[in-house]
């Protein structure tokens, strides 16, 4: 029996070794680097918590954090709502629904860099598609990326455009909802809105919960499109972009690593909060079934 147990460890040893060498060790190293001043060319110098204290006095850091949090607060619910709406629409049995499902999901399979370059053109003040359409209605060209007030709305437009990617999980969830629940609701005289509120939303809540957590993590770590597109008045300088600038443009690797740890803590806290309150709104039908059986 003991040999069997030991053999189990041997079998999982490659994974454990990989985990320690490629995950735990770099984490430990990163924690140490966050306490140093390191330009990557020379040896790191230990500076204690200086990087962390300097960060909270750095107006660019605070601005990047604000830009990112503000984006996350608006974009995550917006993305969820749009994806859910699209999923409900393509869940209906109409002709050509497969085409719409494919078309709406397409943004998710295109490379992020290509999408960013495409949007940079769409949002261009002089040659952009949006301003071209607006000009047909006599509206003056808007500086989507050059006017600081329009940078956030521009990024939110991109979120809405890419919401088809999130549709897939909602669609799978919708198709998993037993039809007898809707039939029961109909017998009780529920209209479409009431059916959505009392059947669809609770049954989809685990999927919404999953997308909420992933959405928060994704929004806080926003990088590639912000790096390519930017935005006036530092409104497009998201947290990860500023981290990258410090690490690779200014060779302040210790400072950038400290930023990485702060972001980790922020994401961890937000995720824990979401988990903490999930019991109030996330409904797991399997748990109800268990309770029902126990009750019997």
């Amino acid at each position: 029996m003991r040999l069997k147990q030991n053999m189990g460890y041997v079998y999982i040893m490659p994974w454990i070794l990989g985990f320690f060498i490629f995950t735990v060790a770099p984490l430990g190293f990163a924690f140490y680097i966050g306490l140093t001043e390191w330009d990557t060319f020379t040896s790191p110098t230990f500076v204690g918590l200086d990087n962390y204290t300097a960060l909270f006095k750095d107006e660019n850091f605070l601005k990047a954090l604000w830009v990112t949090i503000r984006f996350a607060v608006i974009s995550v619910p917006l993305g969820i709502a749009t994806s859910l709406l699209i999923a409900c629409l393509v869940n209906s049995k109409v002709r050509g629904v497969s085409f719409f499902r494919t078309a709406l999901y397409l943004p998710a399979v295109v490379s992020g860099v290509s999408i960013s370059l495409l949007w940079k053109w769409i949002l261009d003040k002089d040659f952009g598609l949006i301003n071209l359409v607006l000009s047909k209605f006599g509206i003056e060209p808007l500086g989507w990326l050059s006017d600081p007030h329009l940078v956030l709305p521009s990024y939110l437009m991109m979120v809405v455009w890419g919401a088809g990617g999130g549709m897939l999980t909602y669609l799978a969830g919708l198709q998993d909802i037993p039809s007898h629940l809707y039939e029961a609701a109909e017998i009780d005289g529920a209209n479409m809105f009431q059916k959505f509120k009392t059947v669809t939303l609770p049954m989809l809540s685990p999927v919404i919960f999953y997308n909420l957590v992933m959405g928060i993590v994704g929004a806080m770590r926003k990088f590639s499109d912000a790096y390519i597109i930017g935005g006036a008045g530092n409104e497009g300088r998201f947290y990860m972009v500023y981290l990258y600038e410090n690490a690779f443009n200014y060779l302040k690797m210790g400072y950038a690593t400290a930023m990485g740890w702060i972001l980790f803590v922020i994401i961890l806290v937000l995720t824990l909060i979401v988990f903490k309150f999930s019991s109030a709104w996330v409904f797991y039908s399997s748990e109800v079934n268990k309770k029902t059986k126990k009750g019997k």
Partner: peptide, 9 residues
């Protein structure tokens, strides 16, 4: 021209 315009063009 405005900087944004000159930069984008």
């Amino acid at each position: 021209p405005e900087r944004a315009q000159a930069d984008s063009m």
